Simulated scan of single mutants.
Amino acid sequence: MGLTSHIEELKKKHSDLSHRVEAAQRAPGTSDAEIAEMKKQKLRLKEEITRLSAEPA
């Protein structure tokens, strides 16, 4: 897998996670801990995307 396709895959996962967080925040049965964990995962993905995007090709 090339670097560009890997970054695109990470962006897709980040976007999917964003939608899951939004849905979880609207769902009354979702705990704050679950939402916080998803947000942490989103942040890790964003940091990885940023790191990989900054690397020379």
Rank of each mutant, 00 (worst) to 15 (best):
G2W: 10
G2C: 07
L3F: 06
L3P: 04
L3S: 06
T4I: 04
S5Y: 04
S5H: 03
H6S: 05
H6D: 06
I7S: 01
E8A: 07
E8C: 00
E9P: 00
E9T: 05
E9V: 01
L10G: 03
L10W: 09
L10D: 04
K11F: 07
K11Q: 12
K11P: 04
K12C: 01
K12Y: 08
K12H: 05
K13D: 12
K13L: 15
K13M: 14
K13F: 12
K13R: 15
K13E: 15
H14G: 01
H14C: 06
H14R: 11
S15K: 07
S15M: 03
S15W: 07
D16T: 12
D16M: 12
D16S: 12
D16N: 15
D16I: 09
S18E: 13
S18M: 08
H19I: 02
H19G: 08
V21Q: 10
V21R: 03
V21H: 08
V21L: 06
E22A: 13
E22S: 14
A23P: 07
A23D: 13
A24P: 11
A24W: 09
A24C: 12
Q25N: 08
Q25S: 07
Q25Y: 04
R26D: 04
R26T: 03
R26N: 11
R26C: 02
R26V: 00
A27M: 05
A27K: 15
A27D: 15
A27N: 15
A27G: 10
A27L: 11
A27P: 10
P28V: 10
P28A: 13
P28S: 14
G29Q: 15
G29K: 03
G29F: 13
G29W: 13
T30I: 06
T30Y: 01
T30F: 02
T30P: 02
S31D: 12
S31K: 08
S31L: 09
D32T: 02
A33V: 12
E34Q: 11
E34V: 00
I35E: 00
I35L: 09
A36L: 12
A36W: 01
E37M: 04
E37Q: 14
E37H: 13
E37V: 01
E37Y: 07
M38V: 10
M38C: 11
M38Q: 15
M38H: 13
K39G: 01
K39M: 10
K39Y: 03
K39P: 00
K40R: 14
Q41I: 02
Q41F: 03
Q41P: 00
K42P: 00
K42R: 12
L43A: 14
L43S: 12
R44M: 11
R44L: 11
R44K: 14
L45G: 07
K46G: 04
K46E: 11
E47N: 15
E47Q: 10
E47F: 03
E48I: 01
E48H: 07
E48C: 02
E48Y: 06
I49A: 07
I49F: 11
I49G: 04
I49T: 04
T50L: 12
T50E: 14
T50Y: 13
T50G: 03
T50V: 10
T50D: 13
